[in-house]
Design a binder for these strands. Sequence first.
DNA 1: TATGAATGAGGCTTCATTCAT
DNA 2: CATGAATGAAGCCTCATTCAT
Lengths: 209, 209, 209, 209
Amino acid sequence: MSATAKEPRWERRKQDRPQELLAAALQLFVERGYAATRLEDVAALAGVSKGTLYLYFDGKESLFKSVVRANMLPLLDEAEARVDRHEGSSAELLCELIRNWWEAASHSGLKGISKLMVAESGNFPELARFYHEEIIARSDATVVRVLERGMARGEFRRIDAEAMKKVIVAPVLMLMLWDQSLPPCDIAPIDTDAYLKSLMDLCIHGLKA
Amino acid sequence: MSATAKEPRWERRKQDRPQELLAAALQLFVERGYAATRLEDVAALAGVSKGTLYLYFDGKESLFKSVVRANMLPLLDEAEARVDRHEGSSAELLCELIRNWWEAASHSGLKGISKLMVAESGNFPELARFYHEEIIARSDATVVRVLERGMARGEFRRIDAEAMKKVIVAPVLMLMLWDQSLPPCDIAPIDTDAYLKSLMDLCIHGLKA
Amino acid sequence: MSATAKEPRWERRKQDRPQELLAAALQLFVERGYAATRLEDVAALAGVSKGTLYLYFDGKESLFKSVVRANMLPLLDEAEARVDRHEGSSAELLCELIRNWWEAASHSGLKGISKLMVAESGNFPELARFYHEEIIARSDATVVRVLERGMARGEFRRIDAEAMKKVIVAPVLMLMLWDQSLPPCDIAPIDTDAYLKSLMDLCIHGLKA
Amino acid sequence: MSATAKEPRWERRKQDRPQELLAAALQLFVERGYAATRLEDVAALAGVSKGTLYLYFDGKESLFKSVVRANMLPLLDEAEARVDRHEGSSAELLCELIRNWWEAASHSGLKGISKLMVAESGNFPELARFYHEEIIARSDATVVRVLERGMARGEFRRIDAEAMKKVIVAPVLMLMLWDQSLPPCDIAPIDTDAYLKSLMDLCIHGLKA
DNA sequence: TATGAATGAGGCTTCATTCAT
DNA sequence: CATGAATGAAGCCTCATTCAT
């Protein structure tokens, strides 16, 4: 599946105006929340005028949904394939999964989207459902597959994989939220490397047979 | 003629108005976020009119800060004392700590406040700092004490307690956020008991010497 | 006409609450204007609660009109009689008139009322008419009588008494306005004595035959 | 198809909007006072909607200050120069000064501004100081120069010029106030010509050596 | 396409007025 | 009589949206 010349992911488009607007909108929505973000600020941050925004999006809500969808869709197909192809130990696989997930989140808008979904789930429940089905549920399922692979191969002790998956996913999600929230408040940020190492360390020791 | 002859325009007493307003405000701020919450709705939910709110609070921002502070301050001093008095194993102590923390959060507004702080940290950075210092930092410190107690007594293996504390706190915080976000979106809620059991199970096995 | 024991000048009454309220209202209305004066401040300045005000006055507008009328009515009957009884020169009479008027204004609320009438004439035209008929017109008429007496007795040269009366009244009114406006703004106040002396000096030299 | 085919929602150009708004605001502020003037009425009188006002002014207070400054600044430099160039008698000069001042006030917003300053000095003390320094103090100084010129040339008798200047300025100011206040109340307006003639007549006779 | 002036619904806040105590 | 908690209409201001250019 080679990169297509035109991927019609946003309403209308021309050159990269939409992307710039989506990037600006993501930043401000994440910083301030949906209601507190003014479209004029989004437009200014994208270097266009207020009216231009309406050439590409139907309005504020449409822009918001586009931001969420645009930042979620590219993420879906990455980590999963790798799990099935993996040859090594399940512990290694789990660690790789965690680290890959964090890497993917860091190089995309997923960290911000996750914060947005926590903040705005009440105002956009169907978006929150979409996020949970497409991102969380698939991440969960991937973790479950690894956990079951580990148990099946005798590497992991018997655990409640369904419950444990969320326990393992939670620290990664929380790291995303902290990563978004702490620096703007002048709160000392998390030491990401040490945090992830501790998480993987805890999982390896906590799960091993 | 027992009570009201001619439907009084208002009823309750001055003393409990602030609490009623704070409770209503907490609910709506958590559901909708700060900017999307209308003071008229808060007042209506508390059973009073718009103007009454201003008899007790200086305005929207003041109400918000009061909500946060009122729901954070009562929580601070509970779990910590228990740690020092504990006689049993550190694993038991850690489990008790996690469960107590969740219990306390469930019977107070802390779950909502935590969601609020994720959502509004960018708009109220000094409140976010207050929250982190009073809630997160103290929870972290308590966890650290337990981890170091366990290591000192040979119950836990040597770990990076500073990094691990956040890994352990994160799932509890994330549970609070899910607990607030999922039900209003008609997403299947977390099985809290199984989740906490898995968390404690992972910690016990993951930390033991 | 001896002083009566009860002069029913205000709506209802009891002891001296009404006077205290009227005094407080006069002060604040003059300082801030009608619209910018809050009844709660009036009540507080009078040492009573907001509700009490409504026991004595029908509302804000009623209070305002009462303030104006209460401070105008006592003033009406003083200066006029003196003119007819006067035996000396018309120049002396005019000077006495000016000084008496200023004295009367200083020891009553008339200075404030005059400022109020300038400020609020547009919002209370019928009050402004009342003020002009009862205060200005009568002052004017008195001045005219003095001017005509002076001309009749050959002390003053022939002038347009109708036009000149306002020219003579204006500096006294303006002095009242300055006296009310300048000190609160930290602007150097008028030297009242020198001002009145100059006015009388100008009149005496300017009118003499 | 000469111009508007389908009734445009707005018409005029950006450049003259501020002046139109300032003119409308001056009128209403003078008529009703600061607090009683609604911005929506100002906007309507200027032919625009509420929100448009905020494109040009920061808010009500900013609009008010702009109104005052815009109507004061153009007035400052006119009459003064003429005094120094004058060749004729000081009596003529004084009369010319008075008449020029009145003419200037009549053809500008100064009459209204003067009323506003009397009414709102308590609420805008620093504006009142600005007005007194820029308008009153300069008028005063010009009058003083004429009086001293007259005394120096032996045309005027010796007087207290500092006190007399305010006595001479007061009738002109008071005429402005009457001119603003009387007509809206259906009170017979001042006969301006006769009034000014009487004032000049009084000054000439009252000052001459 | 792109602009930005203009609009007006909607929310925060004030305060005159009411009325149970 | 007096109080002050409660009300709600009204005004200031913001900002999503429209549209002539």
